[in-house]
């Protein structure tokens, strides 16, 4: 989905976001950077429709995002905390969010298990969140967000709780999924290295009340992603042609 953030601002008791504008084509990986407390989480929540903006508008595929309104978009959110239901197993947690998609129970189970496996949690499906480490909980939350095959994926410092090794694994996983599926991702991170490594668009916010300090197109990354997508499409076409030829 195409993302347009147009003059978005937010005041609580104090003005937090002055005015922020940027846009991203479908399939772009937007990294949001900025000092602590400048309103990154707030902006993410506005894009996700969890918080109304004081000024400006957010459009997803030209449809305005209105906080609290019913919609049909698939939005996956990885919050700073895992927000898993403690009384459900990891598998039940992931399967739960597949219910509104109308999948039958057996499919929900299968999809949940597949995404838990991708997140490196094979064997832990029947554990409750209280019985696994914080990093594993966060990975389960990521698996949950990916399981709905979101049109837009919003991630708020999702790897903050992970150790270096798991951070690398999950970075690769998110990057791989992004490349394979062409999802639009809005990703808040502290790490400039991480942003440069994965982002196609980098949005650097200023101190509060925040504006866009710098908007950088990380074109090498974008070009490479487009190239990978083209090659993927080509190979899929050829595979189909070959299979079609074999069966004829």
């Amino acid at each position: 989905m195409k993302l347009l953030v147009a003059g978005v601002g937010k005041d609580y008791l104090i003005p937090v976001i002055d005015s922020v504008s940027f846009h991203a084509e479908a399939g772009e990986f937007v990294c949001l950077l900025g000092p602590n407390g400048c309103g990154k989480t707030t902006l993410l929540r506005i894009v996700g429709g969890l918080e109304p903006a004081t000024r400006g508008a957010v459009l997803l595929d030209d449809q305005p995002v209105v906080a609290g309104d019913a919609h049909t978009r698939r939005v996956g959110v990885v919050f700073q905390e895992d927000r898993l239901l403690p009384w459900m197993t990891l598998e039940q947690n992931v399967a739960l969010v597949l219910r509104p998609l109308g999948l039958p129970a057996a499919d929900r189970r299968a999809v949940a298990r597949r995404h838990l496996r991708l997140a490196g949690l094979a064997g832990f499906e029947d554990y409750h969140p209280g019985r696994v480490s914080g990093g594993m909980r966060q990975r389960a939350a990521i698996a949950r967000a990916l399981a709905i095959e979101p049109d837009v994926l919003l991630m708020d410092e999702p790897f903050g709780a992970l150790d270096a090794q798991n951070r690398r694994i999950m970075q690769n996983e998110v990057r791989r999924i992004w490349q394979e599926t062409g999802r639009t991702i809005l990703f808040v991170t502290h790490s400039i290295e991480e942003a440069v490594a994965v982002g196609t668009v980098l949005v650097m916010l200023s101190a509060r009340p925040s504006r866009v300090r710098a908007l950088i197109r990380n074109d090498v990354r974008a070009a490479r992603a487009a190239l990978i997508e083209d090659l993927n499409t080509m190979i899929m076409e050829e595979v189909e042609r070959q299979q079609g030829g074999a069966s004829a």
């Binding site: 996700g48 927000r83 739960l96 969010v97 509104p100 709905i148």
Partner: peptide, 16 residues
């Protein structure tokens, strides 16, 4: 409330 908000994000119905 944060769990209910998670439910909203994933469009769980009121009953769910």
């Amino acid at each position: 409330r944060r769990l209910l908000e998670m439910g909203d994000v994933y469009r769980l119905s009121g009953h769910q």
